[in-house]
Amino acid sequence: MTIDQSPVNQFAVCLDNQDYEASLEVGKIYRVVNDEQAKASGLIRIIDESGEDYAFSSNRFHPIAVPKAVEKVLLTQS
């Protein structure tokens, strides 16, 4: 099975929400916002539970590729 993912839309699963329990849920898939400056600082910018994008330590997340059908559902929930 091949995963056809849009290069524009990226996603990551949360691995650690310590100290950010209100903003992040472990195991939840979040949309990643491209931010080269954050990336250079070891951060990842995601859209959190508030619906806003914030930078978190990248070691809290693992990037994932999702099939187009899953991407479509995730984007409708953002």
Score class of each variant (00 low, 15 high):
Arg45Ile: 03
Ile46Ser: 09
Val26Asp: 01
Ser78Gln: 15
Glu49Phe: 10
Glu71Cys: 08
Glu52Arg: 13
Ser6Trp: 01
Leu43Asn: 01
Phe61Asp: 09
Val33Thr: 08
Pro7Phe: 03
Asp19Trp: 12
Ser58Ala: 12
Ile3Trp: 10
Ile64Val: 11
Glu25Gly: 12
Ala40Gly: 04
Ala12Asn: 08
Pro63His: 05
Asn9Cys: 12
Lys28Pro: 07
Gln77Trp: 12
Tyr54Val: 13
Ser6Val: 06
Asn17Ile: 07
Asn9Leu: 08
Ala55Gln: 11
Asp19His: 14
Phe56His: 09
Ser23Gln: 09
Pro7Lys: 03
Val70Thr: 09
Asp16Ile: 10
Glu36Phe: 06
Pro7Glu: 05
Ile44Cys: 10
Asp16Leu: 08
Ile47Ser: 08
Ser57Met: 13
Phe61Ala: 00
Asp4Arg: 11
Leu15Phe: 08
Asp35Gln: 02
Pro7Ile: 07
Pro67Phe: 00
Asp35Cys: 00
Val26Leu: 01
Ile47Gln: 12
Phe61Met: 02
Val33Gly: 02
Ala12Phe: 08
Thr76Arg: 15
Gln77Cys: 13
Gly51Met: 09
Ser6Phe: 06
Ala40Ser: 04
Ile44Met: 09
Phe11Trp: 06
Val33Gln: 09
Thr2Gln: 09
Ala40Pro: 01
Pro67Gln: 03
Ile29Leu: 03
Val33Pro: 02
Leu75Trp: 04
Asp4Tyr: 15
Phe11Gln: 03
Leu43Phe: 01
Val70His: 09
Arg45Pro: 06
Leu74Asn: 05
Val26Ala: 09
Gln77Ala: 14
Ile46Trp: 10
Ala40Met: 06
Gln37Thr: 13
Ser57Leu: 15
Asp4Glu: 11
Tyr54Arg: 14
Ala40His: 00
Lys68Trp: 04
Phe56Tyr: 11
Leu24Met: 03
Asp53Leu: 07
Pro63Glu: 01
Asp53Trp: 10
Leu24Asn: 04
Ile44Phe: 07
Ser50Met: 05
Tyr30Val: 00
Met1Val: 14
Thr76Asn: 14
Leu43Cys: 02
Met1Asp: 14
Leu15Cys: 04
Lys72Arg: 01
Val13Tyr: 07
Ala55His: 14
Ser50Trp: 12
Ala55Ser: 15
Val66Pro: 03
Arg31His: 09
Ala38Asn: 01
Lys39Ala: 06
Tyr54Phe: 15
Ala65Val: 11
Glu49Cys: 15
Val73Ser: 05
Val33Trp: 03
Val66Gln: 01
Ser41Lys: 09
Leu24Gln: 03
His62Met: 12
Gln10Val: 05
Phe56Gln: 10
Gln37Ile: 09
Gly42Gln: 00
Tyr54Glu: 13
Lys68Pro: 05
Ala55Lys: 14
Val66Ile: 04
Ser78Asn: 15
Ser57Glu: 15
Glu52Lys: 15
Thr2Arg: 12
Ser23Thr: 05
Phe61Cys: 06
Ile47Trp: 10
Val8Ser: 11
Gln37Pro: 07
Ser6Tyr: 01
Thr76Tyr: 10
Ala69Arg: 07
Asp35Ser: 00
Tyr30Ile: 04
Asp19Asn: 15
Glu71Lys: 05
Ser6Gln: 02
Val26Thr: 05
Ile3Cys: 08
Lys28Tyr: 01
Val66Ala: 00
Asn59Pro: 12
Tyr20Arg: 03
Gly42Asn: 02
Ser23Phe: 10
His62Thr: 12
Ala55Cys: 15
